[in-house]
């Protein structure tokens, strides 16, 4: 059950430094939204506020609202642990648990949710690995360490691990930046498939990737070092790349800066 994300008036801080300021945007269910922008513009920070991962770092805080359908993720009584079970995340560098087998990696989140039965686990592990286009490559070595896979396979393993707990939303923080072009293509194909079931937000430095995989694109920018990142515009991806309404977006996309 994919859900809609509604961000309004969102600011995030590292200590006293404001990393992003007054962000408001909407992400429709079963779409892919790409966050693009120069380094340090706060796009990853915005992403990390969507599953309350931002506050894992000591001294950080968030202001504003993030609605998942109609529930404010920062509202009173909301448990960040439960939020992260609903909003899954894939990171820049593939990070399977190094001591665990492929199977155990995918099952890790399920075990946290109290799933114990072997047949239940087996079913979800296979379904998730199939969902991540990895099943055929690893079905004969599920008990081998996850670290034995190639970088691209590890990243798909991490995607399998994230979707195993059936999240509503999948956040991806530059999921292909550590991968070669062929593995990147495999992940992009996967994103296109996952779109039918999940709401996906992807941060990327690769503008062709944003153009290929996303329905909508948000462009972030900073006025200068030490300034907070801001959302410049968000629109249909073809429009952002062909005819953006903001001059800064056009400059960035055409490679005049950033």
């Amino acid at each position: 059950m994919a859900k809609r994300i509604d961000v309004s008036g969102l600011s995030a801080y590292y200590g006293s430094v404001r990393a992003i300021e007054d962000i408001s945007l909407t992400v429709e269910p079963r779409t892919v939204t790409a966050f693009i922008g120069p380094s340090g513009c706060g796009k990853s920070t915005v992403l990390r506020t969507l599953n309350r991962m931002h506050e894992v770092i000591p001294g950080t805080r968030v202001e504003g609202k993030v609605l998942l359908d109609d529930v404010d993720l920062y509202g009173p009584g909301i448990d960040p642990v439960a939020v992260r079970r609903t909003v899954g995340m894939v990171f820049q560098r593939p990070n399977p648990f190094p001591t665990m087998s492929i199977y155990e990696n995918v099952a890790a989140g399920l075990r946290l949710n109290g799933v114990r039965g072997k047949s239940d686990l087996d079913g979800v592990v296979e379904h998730s690995l199939r969902g991540a286009n990895l099943w055929n490559e690893v079905k004969d070595r599920l008990n081998k360490p996850g670290m034995g896979l190639s970088g691209g396979q590890q990243q798909r393993l991490c995607i399998a691990r994230a979707i195993a707990v059936s999240p509503e939303v999948l956040l991806m923080d530059e999921p292909c930046s550590a991968l070669d072009p062929i593995s990147t293509l495999a992940i992009e194909d996967l994103i296109a498939q996952l779109k039918s079931e999940y709401t996906i937000v992807i941060v990327t430095h690769n503008m062709q990737q944003a153009a290929r995989v996303s329905d909508r694109t948000a462009f972030f920018n900073i006025a200068g070092t030490g300034e907070p990142g801001k959302l410049i515009e968000i629109d249909e991806t073809p429009r952002i790349f062909a005819n953006p309404s903001q001059r800064a977006t056009e400059d960035y996309i055409t490679g005049r800066f950033g």
Partner: peptide
């Protein structure tokens, strides 16, 4: 402990 490992666990909804 690598940050990536810690974040991987938190992102799965670990306490």
């Amino acid at each position: 402990t690598p940050r990536e490992q810690i974040e991987a666990a938190y992102a799965l909804g670990a306490t």
